[in-house]
Nucleic acid binder design. Structure first.
Lengths: 187, 187
DNA sequence: GTCTATAACGGGATAGAC
DNA sequence: GTCTATCCCGTTATAGAC
């Protein structure tokens, strides 16, 4: 039995980019096949439950990425400002400067919403809680910390929608500069 | 020839709620039929080019709503603060306190994005420009006015995504209270 | 304008060979 | 693990009666 040409993680990564572009309902098996370079049968070998399982794997991958990259940066070395800016740089790169959409945001739409509400909630919560911890580290009061944490995620998501709608990455880039000032402002 | 039971405007309005819930790819003709109470044939009577034309009509309706409700409130009577708050109340009612999604936001996803980029851009622009005018009225400098206007739309969209993802309308409600303070703050 | 029926197509999913 | 072939169903779309 020949070793797979690409790892399962790599497959999930590629599936993610398809769901990110097209959303759940828009991501046909044909596109998922094209995007991964695997035939449909191979996809079903990896994911016996089909598309539903693929999206689930993608959401788990997104959650892991939030934990291992986003939150990890927030909990890393340096001042709160430096840590926040490292997280924003990771987002900037992941979202290609505002040209890509957010998988989570795109999976909140349509058929996927009901199917994956728990996973979505969990992923967003992890992200918010990571930011909340950072705010507390920065000496922000407990109540304000939660609000500012939610505000960051809210502004990232909103910037992606607006930049997508205007077909112009400017709002996203401006958001990246604005967020640190607001997040760390004295109360 | 019997008069139609509901007006074309009413049909478009109902189509809008379906696209708002399910996005473009998720809105099947069966759902559009259910949502309007019209048979498929009747839908094709109103929209000979099918779903593509339905979504176009919905986007035109959304644009008209932005002009005739959102921007109209911004240009209405009263202080800038009052006018902004009237717009936010209109949004609160339209989005059902954060429980509904935004049609525009949901049509930025998937197959619809390429198809309707011009209309989306135009709708978002009208909204931003209405807010920009209000900011200028309120004595905000030209440069800041544009940024604050974009920030409002960005925060509305972000709040809808986050509230949708967390399945909790709290972020949306908090955004409604926060926006007027930021928008009209001294520079 | 609306209905029933149906064509034409694409989507998700499976079977079995290799 | 991957391929080819195929099935079934939902979806889009059209035709024609009323």
């Amino acid at each position: 039995m020949p070793a797979p040409l690409i790892s399962r993680d790599e497959v999930v990564e590629r599936l993610l980019t398809v769901f990110q572009r097209l959303g759940y309902d828009g991501a046909s098996l044909a596109e998922l096949s094209r995007g991964t370079g695997l035939g449909k049968s191979s996809l079903y070998h990896y994911f016996p439950n089909g598309k539903e399982e693929m999206a689930l794997a993608v959401l788990r991958r997104a959650h892991a990425w939030i934990e291992q990259v986003v939150v990890a940066e927030l909990e890393g070395q340096g001042s709160p400002k430096e840590r926040l800016e490292r997280m924003l740089r990771a987002l900037d790169s992941f979202y290609a400067g505002g040209k890509n959409a957010c998988v989570l945001g795109n999976l909140v739409v349509g058929g996927a919403r009901q199917l994956y509400q728990r996973q979505l909630r969990s992923a967003f919560s992890t992200w918010v809680e990571g930011l909340e911890s950072l705010a507390l580290d920065a000496g922000i009061s407990r109540r304000t910390a939660r609000e500012r944490a939610e505000d960051v995620v809210l502004q990232v998501q909103g910037a992606l929608v607006l930049s997508g709608g205007l077909d112009d990455p400017t709002p996203f880039r401006r958001m990246l500069r604005k967020v640190p000032k607001e997040f760390l402002a004295p109360e």
